[in-house]
Design a protein around this nucleic acid. Structure first.
Lengths: 234, 234
DNA sequence: CCTGCTAACTGGTCGGACCAGTCATGAGCC
DNA sequence: GGCTCATGACTGGTCCGACCAGTTAGCAGG
């Protein structure tokens, strides 16, 4: 492990370690963790630090702490919320890859719907911003990482136009997950495969208030990306 | 149940209090919170408890803690993730109501897509479960609260069928938000307005592998609910 | 005016004490 | 035997007071 413990805080480091251990199944769901005092001795830190780490794990939704009883791994990881997703992705393997696909699938759904909404209600200045992003995405000498960032900006701008605050929050969560391991998506943005045509056509459709074309175009973009992704990881 | 937030833990109570204060703007974004020692004295608890509360706030994404520097409210609340949504909803007012609509809007999007996916790939046992839920939803003497719970089970079952793990996680977050203030949605399930017809027709369409009808039916269900909701809160 | 040291903050860690729930155990009773 | 319930050895929760470790503002000296 090259980056053994690149965290700063003791508590953070320990929380991170335990998180990995739990996600990787070293502690089965429902199983009890060692007591705080035990862990403190084990990691050679003060109990306060262990407590902080525990609180963090509880915050992730990974464990359930009960006063008097043992601290146990949450029964179903699915209850755990989204904070464990980076681990799932990084752990590679079957699950990681499938979640990766899921992420893109969801992104496609949201992209399509947002584009439809945008075609219905976008104001001129919002459209101008989209236009600008599509233009920059079309520049010939664009590096993959830049294209990726711009593509995501485009997504967020589209989401912002929908006016759905909740969706904005969700998309930020998605972005967090996404940019935790951006390199896994970089192949999608190689100059020889990435094509900004969808973006340009979608913007045109939004300008023309063509709801169906706007949605379908962005869905097509996401679908082709998903296909490519599945081919890359196969 | 009056307010007063009768939480159990000291740290939890304080974190809750501060969360409300921040969300309601008592501390502006970027502003520094009082130091841990000050807060400890102010709330008449030990600094450890304040620290735990702080860690929790940091976990919510509400504040940024810097060793040596002050603890400040995160610059943009939008970065704060979903944990603050219940506060936004409970705070009532303009924002609360609009987020409420957003929630239903998103739910409609996910419902429609999930139904489409289900029509493509549902296995017999999953369909049987949906069928059972639709049947129970059609019972004449159903109480609103029961209908609400069943409706949500239906939603989750549909989401499970899509096989998208990420979506499952998202829908759990949505459910958490939703059932934090279920009574706000109860009017939708009054016997005189709630109609399980959409559910039954959607299940039939899924059985028949009719992708379009399945999706449209659930979207229609969500749309009518949204209309009703906007009428109620108007 | 600027530089750089210093002192007074901030949060981070420590350890050790005690309070407060939980749970397995086993004595006592039916 | 099988049940009830006291009890003590766990568990986590809170407190104290000390010290370590960064940050920052202000002041002395250039």
């Amino acid at each position: 492990m090259s980056r053994a413990t690149p965290k700063k805080n003791v508590a953070e480091r320990i929380a991170s370690t335990l998180k990995s251990a739990i996600v990787r199944g070293r502690f089965q769901p429902g199983a009890a963790l060692p007591s705080e005092r035990e862990l403190a001795e084990q990691y050679d830190v003060n109990r306060s630090s262990i407590r902080e780490a525990m609180k963090r794990l509880e915050g992730w939704g990974l464990v359930t702490i009960r006063h008097g009883g043992a601290t146990r791994v949450t029964e179903f990881l699915l209850n755990a919320g989204l904070s464990v997703l980076p681990e799932l992705l990084e752990s590679g393997g079957q699950l990681g890859t499938s979640v990766l696909g899921d992420l893109h699938e969801l992104r496609g759904l949201l992209l399509g719907w947002s584009a439809e909404q945008a075609a219905r209600r976008a104001d001129p200045s919002s459209v101008a911003r989209l236009d600008e992003l599509a233009r920059r995405l079309s520049e010939p000498k664009l590096k993959p990482a830049e294209a990726q960032a711009l593509d995501y900006d485009f997504f967020e701008q589209l989401v912002a136009i929908t006016g759905n605050q909740l969706l904005v929050l969700f998309s930020r969560v998605v972005r967090d997950i996404y940019f935790r391991a951006p390199e896994r998506f970089l192949p999608l943005y190689r100059p020889d495969v990435f094509d900004a045509g969808h973006h340009r056509r979608a913007v045109a459709a939004i300008k023309a208030r063509d709801v169906k074309v706007a949605g379908d175009t962005m869905r097509a973009h996401a679908a082709s990306a998903l296909t490519l992704l599945r081919k890359e990881t196969a």
